[in-house]
């Protein structure tokens, strides 16, 4: 099974590029960090913006994430997962820090009555990072797999319906759904693996 993964990735250009970028970063190449910033700062920024609501805080998080990425480059495993998921993992921790800070500041300043409204949200929107990472992964995933997954999960269409619409054998559609879902599941796992500093 791991073998199969390697073979698939060899033909999957975005993944090969990402792995090279990860290897260069962990080797101490500053230009690799700049390239990662060009590619993924919109992802990091959008997550932070959704979670925190203000541009100033979101941009602070972006700054912290890429500084942390450089300092923590030894923890990036080029052979295990994508830099995007790794950055999203770091982003989650930074966003949580800002929320905790806000909560403390607020608690110090305000009456107990209004605390509840701004207490860090334990569930609900804490999935922003994961949801947006999956949007990003679908965007960079090649077709027809990306289209198959969109139709299956976002448009909620049956496999038979998708097979007819895309003129693909039903087995091919099922295979794309299975492989695609497992790939997305792996990305979410990679986010979880990133530990707070």
């Amino acid at each position: 099974m791991p073998w199969l993964g390697v073979l698939v990735h060899v033909h999957d250009d975005p993944d090969v590029e990402s792995a090279e970028l990860a290897a260069r970063l962990s080797g101490g190449d500053r230009e690799a960090l700049a390239e990662m910033y060009r590619r993924w700062s919109p992802l990091v920024h959008t997550i932070a913006l959704r979670a925190l609501g203000t541009r100033e805080d979101a941009e602070d998080v972006v700054q912290q994430v890429f500084v942390a990425a450089w300092r923590g480059r030894a923890t990036l495993r080029p052979d295990r997962g994508s830099p995007a998921a790794w950055l999203v993992g770091i982003t989650k921790h930074r966003v949580a820090d800002v929320r905790a800070e806000r909560y403390r500041a607020h608690r110090n300043l305000q009456a107990v009555a209004s605390e509840v409204a701004t207490a860090p949200d334990a569930a609900g929107d804490s999935d922003w990072a994961e949801r947006l990472l999956l949007v990003h992964e679908l965007e960079r995933m090649g077709d027809p797999r990306a289209t198959v997954l969109r139709m299956a999960f976002i448009e909620d269409r049956t496999h038979e319906d998708i097979a007819r619409a895309l003129d693909l054998p039903l087995g091919t559609v099922k295979s794309h759904v299975r492989r695609g879902l497992m790939a997305l599941r792996d990305r979410l796992k990679e986010v979880e693996r990133v530990s707070p500093e």
């Binding site: 959008t46 979101a58 949801r131 947006l132 679908l138 999960f153 879902l181 599941r185």
Partner: peptide, 21 residues
């Protein structure tokens, strides 16, 4: 884990494009 992935990918939220810093 797979069901959580399905839930998250099925509901991207009010996603309206990436916003660069």
């Amino acid at each position: 884990d797979l069901r959580r992935t399905v839930r998250l990918v099925s509901n991207p939220g009010p996603y309206a494009g990436w916003q660069a810093p």
